[in-house]
Design a protein around this nucleic acid. Structure first.
Lengths: 163, 163
DNA sequence: GTGAGTGCAAAGAGTTTGCAGTGGG
DNA sequence: CCCACTGCAAACTCTTTGCACTCAC
């Protein structure tokens, strides 16, 4: 598929960062980068692995690459309410925004309002440096509400359905 | 140790909730409740375990009790940027607020502004139900800045910078 | 007395690491 | 050619679960 100039710019930029930091441009890293750039939304690592093709890159390598990317500011990692994490590419062209994540199917929707940014100066006043924040909403999406009506209906009784 | 009326009220309230839901008032549950009520800030589970006295309550029991408490709305669990979680008592008298967490020593400070609550209706409009949110700030606190690369000595953490 | 709750140990899930082999520069 | 990087498997951490025993009601 043809990539728009935006895509290319982000791609070149990331490769540039890797090179500048003395990292090699390997197949797994390129594949991961491409898949990341194709995502509209933050993505679970297993999904990334699936999209790259499990035979093309080991999970361990994926974690290692993502850690590297994160250090170089190429991706952002955000931890979810269930202990797993999502990764998303960082690009000056993509705006920083937040998400609504379905507690059941893990579907992610963007939510292009960031009310938290304004508070970072306040945090800075408390003496903190290198500030970041996490703002995510969790809920049950319409689809899962429909399906959820059948099984045990009572949403909050015993051990809820995690997995 | 003398507890203020506030403490007692919250304690009675929690016990009440447990009874109402048909749960038994056991030693581990009471111990956990008391320790939770003594916390000023959200607390890591190992710290709770330590404070209860490891010999008085098994970790597995702690997790089970906390899950029960969470379902009854006695505690709130929030997942951190490093995949672990903090627990804090829910009380009508304690306000819902957010935190600034030091990336290095894990020190937690409250931040008594919640800008996110106002956005939940918007999320509801998207069709979501049972909505919650996470808003946490991460940064490096003054102490850890001073100590530079050295691990923090003053803060209450044991295994700090992961591994 | 009886079943909910507990302690212990073992299993799980997600993530990280050790090591020998591979391929980018 | 050499060392950073990879794949594989094993380790690790945090959390959950199975099971027999115990204690709150």
């Amino acid at each position: 598929m043809p990539k728009d100039p935006q895509w290319k710019e982000d791609y070149e930029d990331a490769v540039q960062k890797l090179r500048a930091a003395g990292f090699r441009i390997t197949n797994p890293r390129v594949a991961l980068l491409k898949v990341l750039l194709d995502q509209e939304l933050p993505c679970r690592i297993e999904d990334l692995h699936q999209q790259i093709g499990p035979q093309h890159c080991d999970l361990a390598t994926l974690y290692r690459c993502l850690a590297t990317f994160q250090e170089l500011g190429i991706v952002r990692r955000c931890f979810l309410n269930d202990g797993t994490s999502l990764f998303e590419i960082v690009s000056p062209n993509r705006e920083h925004n937040h998400h609504v994540i379905c507690k059941i199917c893990h579907k992610v929707e963007t939510f292009d309002v960031c009310v938290a940014e304004g508070l970072e100066p306040l945090v800075r006043k408390l003496g903190y440096r290198d500030i970041s924040h996490v703002l995510e909403f969790f809920g049950i999406c319409e689809d899962c509400q429909d399906e959820g009506a059948q099984p045990a209906s009572s949403a909050s009784s015993k051990s809820d359905s995690k997995k």
